[in-house]
Write a protein that binds this DNA or RNA. Sequence first.
DNA 1: CTGGGGTATCGACAGCCGTCAATGTCCCAC
DNA 2: GTGGGACATTGACGGCTGTCGATACCCCAG
Lengths: 111, 111
Amino acid sequence: MLELVDVGCSPAALSDAMSAETATELARTLKALADPARLRVLSLVAGNDGREVCACDLTDPLGLSQPTVSHHLKVLVDAGFLQRDKRGVWAYYSLVPGALERVTDALPGGR
Amino acid sequence: MLELVDVGCSPAALSDAMSAETATELARTLKALADPARLRVLSLVAGNDGREVCACDLTDPLGLSQPTVSHHLKVLVDAGFLQRDKRGVWAYYSLVPGALERVTDALPGGR
DNA sequence: CTGGGGTATCGACAGCCGTCAATGTCCCAC
DNA sequence: GTGGGACATTGACGGCTGTCGATACCCCAG
């Protein structure tokens, strides 16, 4: 007999996947990045060489209403990408150092 | 008088943001990554040291139905992260080299 | 050719998300 | 204290998205 069947598909031959919890966590962080408006916010803040950016500076270049900008800022703060510093009437935002690097390192194949 | 008003907020002092088109494009790519199931798929494929992974190997570790897995694979292929090689009845998937690096480089502050 | 099995597609449905107008909150100027 | 302005929150709405069952496609074995 000796049926050396070449299956062409060897199930269960996979090394362990990223755990479901890790994947969910990372996905939540990536969702915070996966929006044009938020990417532009980060770009604006990052483009200012670490200087803080006032919320009032953002609604014009983004072309969005003030509540919408505020919403996006909150998402980025909650995700750990931005930090808020409210001084008096104004709110200043700046990058959290290393936040983006931490995400790219957590990606599959990310070192 | 000499009112040296310190405004505390200097609008329009921002360098140019990422263009709306670039942001939309990058956001679309990131959306493809921002899902637990898809991250685990990439992790499974990447964890196999470049060897191809058969679609039939994926539905079990993911705990999802076959159509759903097929859907996620299509999203990852369309986004340029995976390439499909259908040989006979089976479909083999492998990483597109450099796809992930290209995304991380496009991120704000992503040099 | 016929049957069987691996994949892809379709249709439907629930839940999430981005957006805005309206409103609330809080701090400063007067 | 009173008014105004900057920012946050709420509520509502349309659109997108992940999921599944059902079904179609397609290749190989016999």
